[in-house]
Design a protein around this nucleic acid. Structure first.
Lengths: 275, 275
DNA sequence: CTCAATTTGTTCGTATGTATG
DNA sequence: ACATACATACGAACAAATTGA
């Protein structure tokens, strides 16, 4: 199995941890159902091309995590699904995002008026003259699932400081009639937890995170909200309806034919009514 | 720093690898700019509360990766940005998805006519009577970035077998006038690479992956396409326009007021014209 | 130019963890 | 369970290169 050896070589992580993470994935993905008897140590030994003791170490790790139960003479079994992972569904459009945040009460909210650093932007809106920094941690059932680090334009913060200090900033923005929106977009990438974040989210250092970089631009082309929200990767799920906003009856044109804009999707710019 | 020790305890990975992953993140995220001198070994030693040799091991890892350059007597420096990571942008709607896939030529495409397993569904469409399994790997500049494992309804496959064997299945479906679509959605989660996948995508076993579960339902409510596409997490970027399909002029109603369906977004069901 | 301060590089001894057969 | 080999981690000391006073 030179393939296997090559793959092992790519990682410096201990063999038994690599084996453990493969077994863990098989359990969490449902490939091995709850209550099911998994392969024998000998089979795993052959599959992964490692010593018997190494497989046992891997099984021991998962036993401590409560995912496996080994019984002498009988075999190793998948424990009854420990806790259906409570997925946080990441919103993919403004309305559902605001709806989802509405009931969310951020904890440990800190506000820095003093040293707001104007963030460098990448061709999405001009920077405001000064920003306020908001930091918070989001919980669900006492379990932290994300950490937010938001730069909010000072001029917007001053519209309702009390509310910005106690509720999700985006919800507050959505409720401000003085603010018109031109653009709001989010970029998701995968990152890795540093010690501070690992401590806040109760995850291992270096474990994967989902990093959302969210920018909201007002109708003056100013980036009024620049947020970096970091989620635990094991509690986040993203659902995307691919056909949202697509006119199916036009489908056979291959998406090339220019249908009237109004029937395809509302044009984004300058839609806001004057007040 | 009991905080730090707690965080270390959560992971069984070698200390020097944990430190290395933190330093790596600081470089890749731009927190430490290219050419910049990073903290001295002594400072890192204090920050991470580890022995000098351990910090050196971490630096050595990043030196081998080409991210750092250490020079005796002077310090340790961030190498000139090695290679702007070529991000693959994940599409978030049907048209852009088809557009993105159009030019994509999957390699190592294998087709299994024989043993197509009807997949269990989760309340999204009925299963077809039989499926064909398509497996492929996607490349960009000779670097693999995703692996696709698709179940395609046999009845759909038979409409144009030759094309399904050589092009992305979704593009082929989009081009088939016989097929009407009722729904297409995608669910993204974070997973971990098993040995087979690690070998295909050239990543370490256990390293994070982005798993896309994509289901396409036709106008008979049959799931004609059930795809699992697994991406390398370090080459994937997801951009979401939050205001797509949102009528900004109605924003102040809090998204509750029912605007006429046509102005908000096309209703999804039964949009297909008869043929 | 020398000296001292700074910073990376190397080595030793010891203890524990990992992996094999 | 054992014997063996190698990796990891610590603390401490020392060596070598660089810099600026």
């Amino acid at each position: 199995m030179s393939k296997l050896l090559n793959a092992y070589d790519r990682s410096r992580v201990s063999l038994y941890l690599q084996v453990a993470s493969v077994l863990r994935e098989r359990i969490l993905s449902g490939q091995w159902a709850a209550g099911e008897k998994i392969s024998t140590l000998e089979e795993l030994e052959n599959e992964f091309q490692v010593a018997r003791v190494t497989v046992r170490q891997a099984v021991e790790v998962l036993r401590e995590e409560g995912l496996l139960q080994a019984r002498q003479g009988r075999g190793t079994f998948v424990s009854a699904k420990p806790h259906d992972r409570h997925w946080v569904k990441l919103a993919t459009n403004w309305d559902s995002l605001i709806d989802a945040l509405k009931d969310n009460v951020p904890r440990r909210l800190t506000v820095e008026m003093t040293a707001p650093i104007p963030q460098l932007e990448i061709a999405d809106g001009k920077a405001a003259s000064s920003y306020v920094r908001l930091q918070s941690v989001q919980y669900r059932n006492d379990d932290p699932y994300s950490s937010a680090n938001v730069l909010l334009a000072r001029q917007v913060f001053d519209l309702d400081p009390a509310r910005f200090k106690n509720a999700a900033a985006l919800v507050t923005i959505a409720g401000l009639s003085e603010v018109g929106l031109r653009d709001a977009h989010q970029t998701l990438t995968i990152g890795s937890a540093d010690p501070v974040l690992a401590d806040v989210l109760k995850i291992p250092i270096g474990s994967p995170t989902v990093n959302a970089h969210c920018v909201v631009v007002d109708d003056n082309d100013v980036a009024i909200y620049v947020g970096d929200i970091i989620y635990r990767s094991d509690s986040i799920k993203l659902q995307i309806n691919l056909l949202d906003g697509v006119d199916l009856s036009k489908r056979r044109d291959g998406g090339k034919a220019a249908a009237p804009a109004a029937t395809r999707r509302p044009s984004r710019a300058k839609l806001r009514q004057p007040h």
